[in-house]
Design a protein around this nucleic acid. Sequence first.
DNA 1: CAGTATCCAGGCTGATACTG
DNA 2: CAGTATCAGCCTGGATACTG
Lengths: 113, 113
Amino acid sequence: MTLDPDLFSDCLPGRPLIRIGDKWTTKIIVCLRDGPRRFGELIVPLRITAKVLTESLRAMERDGLITRTAYDTNPPRVEYALTPLGRTLLEPLAAICAWTAAHQPAVLEARAT
Amino acid sequence: MTLDPDLFSDCLPGRPLIRIGDKWTTKIIVCLRDGPRRFGELIVPLRITAKVLTESLRAMERDGLITRTAYDTNPPRVEYALTPLGRTLLEPLAAICAWTAAHQPAVLEARAT
DNA sequence: CAGTATCCAGGCTGATACTG
DNA sequence: CAGTATCAGCCTGGATACTG
């Protein structure tokens, strides 16, 4: 196990770097893991408001994690997809998921006492 | 790579479960990786206020991630240490660190354009 | 359908002052 | 040293209404 020797180089979830620590980014990434999805296909399962979803998607697009493709149809159709860079995040996120799946009961038990 | 099939079971950083997504928890854990540390040994390198550090430590203690040991001396001496449970978090956190170390430049470049 | 535009509450966070 | 108490600002996130 190797942890960044410089603890304060913003390599961890806190706010600064990537928005891993925010409420929605990671969930959106996982939502996109099986292929492109439309705005409405994200908003429903995530139970997020349009405003917040838009903000999150824009930020992730700026960071190069996803792409936004608008088709000039009526009604409009917009698809969001992971970039190769965004896709590389699936692995560390899976590690977090695995940890939670394994240890959530222990945490909840500790919290109960 | 295996991701939790139930996307909404709070297995990801968002707020709900473990405080992985908050600003300080992960940094505190990494700070404690080499052994117990005193309150003041955390507050200085983390550049956190006493109030926030106290709140974070209490929450982590409730969750069973750290222990708090107060020695009845004068001046007082309190040590915080990772529990075995807390220690298991080092591995997934290292994965996040590794991702950031590897891809931070790409993100910053995307953000700049 | 895929957003924008406002407004607003609550939580996180920090600064400052004080205590056993 | 290791906190607690209080106050205040910011920002995230949500509710609601409206638009091309």
